[in-house]
Write a protein that binds this DNA or RNA. Structure first.
Lengths: 242, 242
DNA sequence: CTAGTTATAGTCAAAATGACTAAAACTGAT
DNA sequence: ATCAGTTTTAGTCATTTTGACTATAACTAG
C-alpha cells in the first residue's frame, strides 16, 4: 500500500505543504470537582497531558488527537477522553472550532474542541502518571499552542451554562445535598451564595427530586439527599440553553 | 509542480481515500429581514444556492466552500458570504462544527458553519440569480446534505440569542424605532408582544440610545428613532451571551 | 374638524428576588 | 444528660421585576 500520509508529512516541498488541507484535531477540556488542598472546599480541576515531542515539547496541553475516519466528532472526543484519563463523561458538548492561522508553528491545524464534566466518583478513578496530571482550572500555568485561551473560553462557557441551564448536577454523583449543589455554584462562579435563598431557587426547578434518604455521618444536622431527573445531556445538539 | 490534490480526489484506490483526512468546508446561514408578501410584516429570510453538480445536484444548499490556506475560519465565512450574495454581515458568529459520518454520500466532510445577520439596507442589494435565491426561513423545502438540520439549529440559536443577548439590532439599520425592534422579536420568536411592556424593557437596556430624530412619513404619530451603541459583534469569541 | 391609529406614559396586582430571622436536628465536649 | 456549636430548613418582609391593562399624546386621512 502506498503511504499516502507521507505526501504531507515528510515532503520538504513547500508548494505541496501549501496545498495540503489543514489538519483536523479533536481536543477536550475536562472539568471535575476536587477538594482544594487549602480549604477543603470543592474546586474545579482539569487533566492535562505533557507534550513529548515538538512543538512545545515538555509543556502541558489539553488532551487531544486526530480525528479518525470511522468516528463522529463527539465519538472522537469521548474516545480521546477515555484514552488519556480513563474517564467516561457525564456531560459532553462541543465548545468551539479553533482555526486561527498560527495556532501551531509547524502546520495549519483546525481543532474542534469539546468540553466535558465528570462526576467525582469517576474523577477519583482517573489515571494520573508522569505525563497526565490534574491542575486547578484557575492555575494551569503556561500551556502549549493556544490552549490557555481555550481553557479560558471553556471556563466562561461553563459559568454561563451553569448560571442558566441545569448543568451543575453533572459534576455531582447521583445523589447529592442542596449544600453540595450550592458549593458547585460557589466554586464555579467564585462567589458566596445565601444558603436559604439558593435552596429556594433549586427546589423550584422541576428536575430536582427529593428522595427519602439523608446523608449520614456528617458532624451536624443530616441533610436530605436529592436526585437530578433531567436528561443525561451527552448530546451536543440538545436544545437546552445557550 | 506536482498536483498534490489529485492524490485524494482522482485516485480510485480505496485505501488511499480511507487514509485521506476528512475534508473541511465552511458554510454560512445568513439571516435577513424582508417583508412577508402576505402580511407585509417583516419575516426572516435566508439565501440558498442551487447545487450544480452531484451529489444533490439541483437541490438548494447553504452557501459554502472549502477553507483556503491563508484565511481564518471567520474570514472564510465572510468571504464565502460576500462571494455568494455580495453582502457584508453586521453580525457573524460560529454556529457549530458538523462532522457526522454520512453527511455527504461521496466523502467524509466536516463543515464548520457560521451564522450571520445582515441589515435590510444590505439585504436589498443582495445578488439574486438563477442559482442564488432567498427563501423564508420557515419554508426552505428539502435541502442538500444535512442542511435542513443546520438551518433548524441556526434558527434555534438565533431565537435563543435574541431572547437573552442584544442582537436584534443587527437585523435593523443604524436608526430604528422601538416598534421595529418589537417586530423583529415578533418575527423571530413568532409571538405577539405587548407594545408598552416591550418598550419598557428595551428602554431599560443601557445600549439603546435615544436620538432627537423622529421617523417621518408614516400614517400616524411619528415614532422616535433610537440607535444601538453596543459593540459590532463580529467577533465569535466575544463573551456576550450563551 | 373628526375618526382612526400608533406612540408613549402610567397604574396596579402578581411574581420573583435579596436580606434577614429563627427553629430544627444533629455532634462533640463538658 | 446537658449544653454549645454548626448546619439544615422554613419563613418573613421589603424591594424589584413582570404582565395585563388604561389613558393620553400626536399624527394622517377624510
Amino acid at each position: 500500500m502506498k503511504r499516502v500520509k507521507s505526501v504531507y508529512t515528510n515532503s520538504a516541498n513547500v508548494a505541496e505543504r501549501q496545498a495540503a488541507p489543514p489538519s483536523l484535531a479533536i481536543s477536550t477540556v475536562i472539568f471535575a470537582l476536587r477538594p482544594s488542598e487549602a480549604s477543603g472546599r470543592p474546586t474545579l480541576w482539569l487533566p492535562l497531558v505533557r507534550r513529548i515531542r515538538e512543538p512545545f515539547k515538555g509543556l502541558w496541553a489539553l488532551p487531544g488527537g486526530p480525528l479518525t475516519h470511522s468516528e463522529s466528532l463527539q465519538d472522537a472526543a469521548s474516545r480521546n477522553l477515555r484514552e488519556t484519563t480513563g474517564l467516561a463523561p457525564s456531560y459532553l458538548e462541543q465548545l468551539y472550532a479553533f482555526g486561527g492561522l498560527h495556532r501551531s508553528p509547524t502546520q495549519r491545524v483546525v481543532s474542534i474542541v469539546y468540553w466535558a464534566l465528570v462526576q467525582p466518583t469517576e474523577a477519583a478513578l482517573a489515571d494520573e502518571s508522569a505525563n497526565v496530571r490534574w491542575f486547578r482550572a484557575d492555575k494551569v500555568g503556561e500551556l502549549a499552542f493556544d490552549h490557555n485561551a481555550i481553557v479560558d473560553y471553556a471556563l466562561w462557557r461553563l459559568r454561563n451554562k451553569l448560571a442558566y441551564g441545569s448543568i451543575a448536577y453533572h459534576l455531582l454523583g447521583e445523589y447529592f445535598t442542596l449544600a453540595q449543589v450550592r458549593e458547585v455554584y460557589e466554586a464555579v462562579l467564585d462567589t458566596r451564595l445565601d444558603p436559604a435563598n439558593f435552596r429556594r431557587q433549586v427546589k423550584a426547578t422541576p428536575e430536582i427530586e427529593e428522595t427519602g434518604e439523608y446523608l449520614q455521618g456528617g458532624k451536624h444536622r443530616p441533610p436530605r439527599l436529592y436526585r437530578f431527573t433531567g436528561r443525561p445531556g451527552l448530546d451536543p445538539d440538545n436544545r437546552s440553553t445557550p
